[in-house]
């Protein structure tokens, strides 16, 4: 295909992606080195029948003028990145200098909003992904043993947790885990602790969020692995059986190697998706106990009095760097493969 034709065909796509994905990334980087204008204060003499007093108020007119003039705010260098709400360099140094031990230091680190969110995001990403894949694989093996008639309904039921809107799915589970909901009340009876609830117990809310993550991610692995199972060469399975391999050995040495490439693909997609975990934090309203990097950005943007674009952007840039680090192995491998193919 000639270059001109190629360009003509792909132009609308590229334009959309450049305008709304590439430019925003630059916009985020620029915004992250600015902070909002400081409030312009003026002294107003406030007179009442009991006498006059000076009051300082925000000069809204001057503020509006300032905002119109410099919408980005004032230049702040890297201070957005280093302040208490982000990397908190000063506080972290202080903690490690004063804390009695490493574990205690980690505990104190969890009081800093950024590190708390990072800890949960990473835990969520690296716990949910393998467990959801294992569960999905097990479901695929189980569904594959069903008679053909029963498979359709089983697949239908199994993909519901994946297809559901993340916010809606997490709300549904959150209501069931509410202290007065069916599972929440059941847990209270089971543990004998009438005060147990998502709001008060950090451990419980982490576990429930992870369970939600596995519940909603397992169907994707299931569908992909199930399709992979249909392509396993039956000859190889049969000859392995004849050679004396038992059921487990066939699964381990014939089926799993066959599904290997699929597993890499599933792991990649799920790592990417789980790293941006966001809706469950809103749905389970676990702001107090478990937050994520994406949620930090959201929280800065929705704050009622002043939207903190600078702060949101700094978190965004750090998150984007995290995504790239996560993707790096894949990118490097693709780069090598592509180069070796070219040579």
């Amino acid at each position: 295909m000639p270059h001109r034709t190629f360009m003509a065909f792909i132009f609308p796509s590229i334009l959309a992606m450049v305008l709304f994905i590439t430019l925003p990334i630059f916009s985020v980087i620029v915004q992250s080195v600015f902070v909002e204008h400081e409030a312009v204060l003026i002294a107003v003499e406030n007179c009442t029948p009991f006498g006059c007093s000076d009051q300082t108020t925000v000069d809204t007119e001057a503020m509006a003028e300032l905002r119109a003039e410099k919408p980005l705010g004032q230049f702040a260098g890297l201070s957005n990145y280093l302040n208490r709400n982000h990397l908190a360099i000063g506080e972290v140094g202080e903690i490690f200098r004063t804390a009695p031990g490493f574990v205690a230091a980690l505990g104190q680190l969890m009081n800093l909003p950024f590190y708390r969110a990072l800890a949960f995001t990473l835990t969520y990403t690296f716990i949910v992904t393998p467990f959801a894949m294992a569960l999905g694989f097990a479901i695929a093996l189980a569904v594959n043993t069903l008679p053909r008639m029963a498979r359709g309904p089983a697949i239908f039921a199994s993909i519901l947790p994946m297809i559901i809107t993340p916010l809606v799915g997490s709300l549904i589970l959150a209501w069931m885990f509410h202290p007065a909901g069916i599972l929440g009340a059941g847990l209270q009876t089971l543990t004998g602790d009438p005060g147990l609830s998502l709001k008060t117990s950090a451990v419980l809310s982490w576990i429930v969020l992870l369970v939600y993550g596995i519940w909603t991610n397992a169907p994707f692995s299931f569908v992909v692995f199930y399709a992979g199972l249909q392509t396993v060469p039956q000859d190889t399975v049969e000859s392995a059986r004849i050679d004396g391999a038992n059921r487990w050995e066939v699964t381990r040495f014939v089926i799993m190697p066959h599904l290997g490439p699929l597993a890499t693909f599933v792991a990649l997609v799920q790592l990417m998706d789980n790293f941006r975990v966001f809706e469950p934090v809103v749905g389970f309203s676990s702001e107090a106990t478990a937050t994520s990097l994406s949620w930090l950005v959201y929280n800065d943007l929705v704050s009622q009095d002043a939207q903190q674009f600078g702060s949101a952007s700094a978190t965004s840039v750090i998150t984007i760097i995290g995504v790239i680090v996560l993707l790096l192995p894949v990118l490097v491998r693709t780069w090598r493969e592509f180069n070796s193919k070219a040579v």
Binding site: I21, M272, S294, V297, F309, S313, I320, L326
Partner: peptide
């Protein structure tokens, strides 16, 4: 592929202003 991995909310914070 890289764009697909970008968290949507980080892009949104680039659009808003």
């Amino acid at each position: 592929l890289v764009f697909r991995a970008m968290p949507h909310i980080t892009l949104v914070s680039g659009y808003m202003l």
